[in-house]
Design a protein around this nucleic acid. Sequence first.
DNA 1: TTAGTATATGCAAGTCATTTGCATTTGTCA
DNA 2: TGACAAATGCAAATGACTTGCATATACTAA
Lengths: 137, 137
Amino acid sequence: MNSMIKKTLQGANLKQTKARIAVLSALEESKVPMDASEIHKQIQKSNSDVDLATIYRILEKFEASGIAHRVNLNKDRFHYELLSLPHHHHVVCKVCGKVQDIQDCDLSTVEQSVKENLGFAIQNHRLEFFGFCKNCS
Amino acid sequence: MNSMIKKTLQGANLKQTKARIAVLSALEESKVPMDASEIHKQIQKSNSDVDLATIYRILEKFEASGIAHRVNLNKDRFHYELLSLPHHHHVVCKVCGKVQDIQDCDLSTVEQSVKENLGFAIQNHRLEFFGFCKNCS
DNA sequence: TTAGTATATGCAAGTCATTTGCATTTGTCA
DNA sequence: TGACAAATGCAAATGACTTGCATATACTAA
């Protein structure tokens, strides 16, 4: 088994179960954030199966452990992606729904002013762009 | 009746109904994005009533007409706010849930690179900060 | 390696935001 | 004012997500 997966679970003090390994693998293979049902289907493609309820419970654990986090793509379900990915954001096509990553994000000026003006301690942020991808333009 | 509301509906080619006026008023008075149920309660406080299903249908229309838009605060429901507000973003406290506005947002550098590298035509973006507000720090 | 125990899982049922069908009401325009 | 498309209320449906509970499984200590 992928030793990266093993380490990730051990590091988070989580038992290595078939279900968790399956969810982690699915997220790892994916280039874009996945929702619970997509993860479910992906696992079934690998000739395995994990109950949807279990997937939700696992995602909750993963988020609490800092393994993954919920990203909000303005759709009617939540999506999840691994936190081991370098910090980045998403570009979502309004036509085909395609999601792409972007790496740049210099928000230091904005963050500075939030801190000074509101006394707000920023922990993290979410930045998404919506528009039309190359193909749909 | 508030003539601003009248103009807004006329401008969008929407019939001026009691329900739409109520929803628009609620959104206008609010300093922060509201979800459907909050709008519902706010309307009832004004001794009026509009069915929740109708509120959802109105919000959909408002979004399609560019009167309001959905903002995603990473909560389990969608929130709506008027688009007539100057462009801004939100700061959400992870402890008390308080939402505040910020006006600054210079993303021109980031946007430029998205355009050049991905050929993606940006229509709008969403930027939210999460952390601890002054009181909860 | 094995028994013991806390934890994880599957299944079924529940919850809750949001949507939809349909009969009725209402705004608008001629 | 009358006609008609569009909007609304109500009730029922949908679909994502959660929860209760009995069973299965991973890990630990001997």
